[in-house]
Design a protein around this nucleic acid. Structure first.
Lengths: 207, 207
DNA sequence: GCGGGTAGCCTACTGAGAGTAGGGAGAGAA
DNA sequence: TTCTCTCCCTACTCTCAGTAGGCTACCCGC
């Protein structure tokens, strides 16, 4: 796991990345609560005070992991949706969903632990994780808002939050039960369920 | 908070209820992680070993709280859905959603902490909380399966899981942002979004 | 009333792990 | 060389989950 036959001095930025990688690994294996800082430090091959020096607290370390994966998720889905822009809103929706499920697949248990399971407590970490959802929700509200021009903001909000929740649960179900169904098919299935509900209003908004 | 001017002997069943009530309260206030068993014991007016005698561990205590609220949620939604049975599937769906949001409203932060936030770690507690969603999902699969007779089980599963996730997220959004919108309106809004996606298939299934 | 059995209860510990104090040493600058 | 700054460590403290072991109020049968 570790390659530290001889402790060597390493610049901060690099060490931080090593620590983050190890932490993500251990959190994914054991869950947040069952992970001890001693174990992370052991795996990196560095002493515990280093972790505190660089990340302040155990929660801080989690936060950093979350921030990293969050940024990744954001650019991924955003990119996929932007690429589908020309093909209309339905395509955008599907592209976003597919990118999301694909992301969950690629990150496996790390995704589940960091974004769903280990979810901590009240406090900054909860906020950080909630912020991921907020980011996805805003993305959706944006898209939906552009197409459901007549819908009330409340309606748009309910749809966006609902869709985020639906995606999360479905992704988790896919991870657990390992149903053979792929990201693309899942996205289409979900889009099928939601889309008519959007279109219904859309069509009444444009005569 | 406590009314224990003089420690008095209390039968087990009664004490258990006192403990559960106090625990639910403290968990809701502080979150699972930030709650200490000492604090719970203090609030009940009983010593810590009692909690362990009756509930085995901190996680066991949470489990018991969760089991309690879970049973409550189940009977509530099931009852509401059964009562709407005569009015057709759309009414059943709406009734179930409304009952869910209403439940979330009534239990406030306890609902959020016990079913969403504090979600712990890997292990039995996670399973227990996942089981709540499983229960809701099965309920939905049941209803959906009866009406989407031609749909593949996979499609039904995606819809059910998606709807559970959507409800959860929307309920949480309502709790946090305290949007003025009531349970009934929220239910209708969500049902509007999902229903056409169901009906599309349904119409092909029934004359 | 008077033992005795048991259910409810307690004080006082152990052990694990989060977080800290305080200092050492390599590497580049002067 | 020496200065200093950054990276790093050993060796603690303190909180809190969980436990050992024993006491006592209450109910029962006598």
């Amino acid at each position: 796991m570790t390659d530290a036959p001889r402790r060597k001095r390493v610049p901060r930025a690099e060490r931080e990345q090593q620590i983050l990688a190890a932490a993500e690994e251990v959190f994914a294996e054991r869950g947040f609560q069952n992970t001890s800082m001693d174990e992370v430090s052991l795996r990196v091959g560095v002493s515990k005070p280093m972790l505190y020096e660089y990340f302040t607290s155990k929660e801080g370390l989690l936060l950093a992991c979350v921030a990293r994966i969050r940024a990744d998720l954001h650019t991924t889905t955003l990119g996929a949706m932007a690429a589908a822009e020309a093909d209309g809103p339905r395509a955008v929706l599907e592209a976003g969903l597919e990118a999301y499920f694909d992301f969950a697949d690629r990150h496996g248990r790390a995704w589940a632990v960091l974004l769903n399971e280990s979810v901590i407590v009240a406090g900054p970490a909860e906020e950080a994780i909630e912020a991921i959802r907020g980011q996805q929700t805003r993305l959706l509200e944006d898209v939906l808002g552009r197409w459901l021009v007549d819908a009330s903001p409340t309606r748009v909000a309910v749809l966006a939050h609902g869709l985020v929740g639906a995606s999360e649960r479905v992704a988790r179900w896919r991870l657990r039960d390992g149903s053979g169904i792929g990201p693309r098919e899942t996205a289409v299935l979900l889009a099928d369920a939601f889309w008519p509900g959007f279109a219904e209003v859309e069509s009444s908004a444009k005569p």
